[in-house]
Design a binder for these strands. Structure first.
Length: 455
RNA sequence: GGCGACGUGGCCGAAUGGUUAGGCAUGGGCCUGCAAAGCCCCGUAACCGGGUUCGAUUCCCGGCGUCGCCUCCA
């Protein structure tokens, strides 16, 4: 049974499922107005790992993750670049899923778009209006948070404390709001802006409304888990929840938030603080698996430093695992099911708030034990451990590469190298070795003969 | 100002009131004709000052420092 930290109760508790064996997850997706950054990558990888682990554990997961395709930032960019707003959103969404694909992040089961749910949002706002939980001003329709008694549940702050600081920031629509924390459900459009009809005037939905409508519609009331980056905790998630409460509906039963990506100075990475803050750059310049590896070695709630050293270290440890997979794939091991004890330990740490750093420790330890087993001729033991490694990696979405296809001509040369060595013609052997290395291969001398692989 | 997180060995990064994290790097060994690759082995570290305790990196108090949230950023 998975136990997971809950932002509301602030402790690790069992993740309950409305229907045992079926898990409904809502993940706040991107606003498509620019290239995805490392933070987006972390969030999606963290929940991809959660999803895969749950599925591996036999749970049927329905992951819903939206695309915010109407928003002020999209309109701003469209105006700035003088191009249609929906051209930007389509382009950015394509880039997004390309990056996700490269990272090995499974596509969510549902990908609702905000623009597809405008009617439902208007209906919901209508309900809030008729119950006096919302009111219109000159620039939009706002939720009256006084109708939400426990507003601040996720922020763990009461309203007065929230307002006492935060000082310099501009309060949106302040002039006519009843309370500074009231937030926009509907924004009236200016001429030329994308707009939809509503009883209160042409406009577009506020950010916080789409996720309530879509999550409740697709997953239903009281769905199991709502997640996203730590920065969404407040105000976004708080405000989503506020609307559900105002509607008299039960919302998410469990809240999960992942930590930030920070730069080497430990500062939150938001704009351009390093050279690889852009996710697209990262997956182009490095093995995309390295990012998953790096995140697996950090707890999801801790900040993670992404820098050259860290990525390099992950690339290296990944190469070691690949090498292991490759060697074992060629070792003609008997077919064995995974070592039960190893998997039990793996489940134990994973069920404890997705403790992937310890899960990785188990994987590395199992690799070491498999190596020792094969050295001492215990092929059955080795096979069971190796299968376990593959199962665990599979559960975490870590795909190990084994056995690149090597040109027949190269394999041929390797065999000639072996022949020369047997004949003790070391001059020829060395020459072939140099030749193969120059062609970009690592030449390994093993008891079973020379093996080559791409460097 | 309010709320919260954190300060661990060369770097990254976990758990934990007393005994092994793990990764990467370094070092040693094995293998090899020599190499490389690979495998094995190795690390007593915990911001400072008090306190609780037989014993604290782990609990409490106080400093110092870093970071996050406090109206639209994953």
């Amino acid at each position: 049974m998975l136990h997971l930290y809950d932002t509301v109760t602030r402790d690790v508790r069992e993740l309950k499922m409305r229907e045992p064996g079926k898990l409904g997850i809502y993940l706040c997706g991107p606003t498509v107005y620019g290239p995805p950054h490392l933070g987006h990558g972390r969030a999606t990888l963290v929940y991809d790992i959660l999803r895969r682990y749950m599925e591996w554990s036999g749970v049927q997961v329905r992951l819903v993750s939206n695309i915010t395709d109407i928003d002020d930032k999209i309109i701003d960019r469209a105006n700035r670049e003088n191009r249609p707003w929906n051209e930007i959103t389509h382009k950015c969404e394509a880039v997004w899923f390309d990056a996700m694909n490269a990272l090995g992040v499974l596509r969510p089961n549902d990908v609702p778009h905000a623009t597809e749910y405008v009617d439902q949002m208007v209906d919901m706002i209508g309900e809030l209006m008729s119950s006096d939980s919302a009111y219109a001003t000159d620039d939009g329709v706002y939720l009256d948070i006084s109708s939400v008694p426990d507003y601040g549940l996720l922020a763990h702050q009461n309203l007065e404390d929230m307002l006492s600081g935060g000082g310099d920031r501009e309060v949106l629509g302040a002039a006519q709001k009843r309370h500074p924390a009231d937030f926009a459900l509907w924004k009236f459009s200016k001429p030329g802006e994308p707009s939809w009809p509503s009883p209160w005037g042409e406009g577009r939905p506020g950010w916080h409304s789409e996720c309530v409508v879509m999550s409740l519609q697709l997953l239903g009331e009281g769905f199991d888990l709502h997640c996203g980056g730590a920065d969404l905790r407040f105000p976004h998630h708080e405000n989503e929840r506020a609307q559900a409460v105002a509607l008299g509906k039960t919302f998410a039963q469990h809240w999960m938030h992942n930590g930030f990506v920070v730069d080497t100075e430990g500062e939150k990475m938001s704009k351009s603080l390093g050279n690889v803050t852009n996710l697209v750059d990262l997956v182009q310049h490095y093995d995309p698996r390295a990012y998953r590896m790096l995140l697996l070695q950090t707890h999801y709630r801790s900040p993670v430093k992404v820098g050259q050293d860290n990525i390099d270290s992950s690339v290296k440890s990944l190469a070691n695992l690949d090498g292991f997979a490759d060697r074992m794939s060629q070792a003609a091991l008997p077919a064995k099911s995974a070592d039960i004890e190893v998997l039990a330990k793996f489940r134990e740490v994973m069920d404890n708030d997705i403790d992937t750093p310890n899960a990785m420790a188990i994987i590395f330890d199992t690799v070491r034990r498999a190596n020792i087993a094969i050295e001492s001729g215990e092929t059955d033991v080795c096979a069971a451990l190796t299968t376990a490694v593959h199962e665990m990696c599979n559960a975490l979405g870590l795909v190990l590469r084994s056995g690149d296809d090597i040109d027949a001509a190269i394999v041929d040369r390797a065999q000639q190298l072996d022949a020369a060595r047997v004949a003790k013609d070391f001059a020829t052997a060395d020459a072939i070795r140099i030749e193969l290395q120059a062609a970009g291969y690592v030449v390994e001398t093993t008891k079973a003969g020379t093996r080559v692989r791409r460097a």
